[in-house]
Amino acid sequence: MTKQSPQQPKDESRRKFLKYSGTALGGVVVGGVIGGIIGTNRSKSGPEGAVPPEATETPQSPQSQDYNQALMFFSQGQFQTVEAAAERIFPKDDNGPGAKELGVAFFIDHQMAGAYGFNAREYMTPPFYKAEATQGYQLTFKRRDLLALGLDSLNEYSQDKHQNTFAKISPEQQDEVLTAFEKDEVNLKGVPGLAFFTILRNLTLEGVYADPLYGGNKNMAGWKMRNYPGNQMSYLDLIEKEEFIQMEPLSLHDHLQLS
């Protein structure tokens, strides 16, 4: 299955890229990537230099501190709860890391601290009425409030059913609790269980698969498990290939060139 094409000199790749991007065309090029992006880490991989996949690895690297891993929104207790819940939604298994190792809880924390947590680009003007199922989300809660209250109710429900906080009950019990929320059987603190569960699930999957710049998908391990190549500039020479091509993913960080 794995296709490995020979590593080619960087110059060739650069020349091709210039050609594709239109920079080498005559006349006025209106579109086209020019300037900053050219000459970035193209030799790493990509169409001309697809490299063999690495075995799924543990992403934790003790070599450097990740100063991004600190809290912008959650309390430490909330963080532990959300981390435990996210891990059940996307657990570690033979395929590779789960949400915890991927930094998903940091991703969720950072998202709630910003525009998305405040529903900044959504219509939050009253009045709020009870909606039909076809009319979508009509809660007065901002996402950050829904999440924080939802985590509280997750703990309250766990206490009630299993005499401990969510992070401290067994994985089987955690699944039971989450299932009750998913089935909309829980309505504590004014938080509809399903609404909370849905947002928690979506945020978890975003944290697994969003570009690592947002704090999750640590070391692109979410992408690697899925053979998703991330941010490649061109598949022009590969799109017609019959065989499945695995390549080392690239992130947006690999494309940043500031000088």
């Binding site: 065309l25 006349g27 061109s234």
Partner: peptide, 20 residues
């Protein structure tokens, strides 16, 4: 107006095209 060929990068719908 001159424009360059598509690179099949897979980012069209919901995205702008950096190649034009």
């Amino acid at each position: 107006i001159e424009r360059a060929a598509c690179q099949y990068c897979g980012y069209c719908e919901r995205f702008g095209c950096e190649y034009g």
